[in-house]
Amino acid sequence: MGLFDLFKKKNSGDVAKDRLKLLLVSDRANCSPDVMELIKNDIINVISKYMIIDTDGLDIQITQTESDSNNGMVPALSANIPIKDMKNRSTK
């Protein structure tokens, strides 16, 4: 790495990796990033009724999981939702 590389923008290798990750989400599930965004917003709306969540830290993605039914891997929607606090429903 040259001395001047320190001030450069993101490396193209990282750009490639990020693009691929997004691409594969839609490829694997036959589900476009637009749809994922809609799902994400709906999840935020539902969870927000009961909890205060960190919407920036929320991460949903299509992953692979083992299935008991046909002893293979199936796609799964996994969501990682950081909870900040519970809403106190009684004082609403």
Binding site: D5, G13, D14, K17
Partner: peptide, 19 residues
């Protein structure tokens, strides 16, 4: 040489993505 410069995905990157 390109991986070191960050201009090519590393082996770990590829394995991580394809698992």
């Amino acid at each position: 040489d390109m991986v070191k410069k960050g201009d090519m995905m590393s082996l770990d990157d590829v394995v991580d993505i394809l698992s």
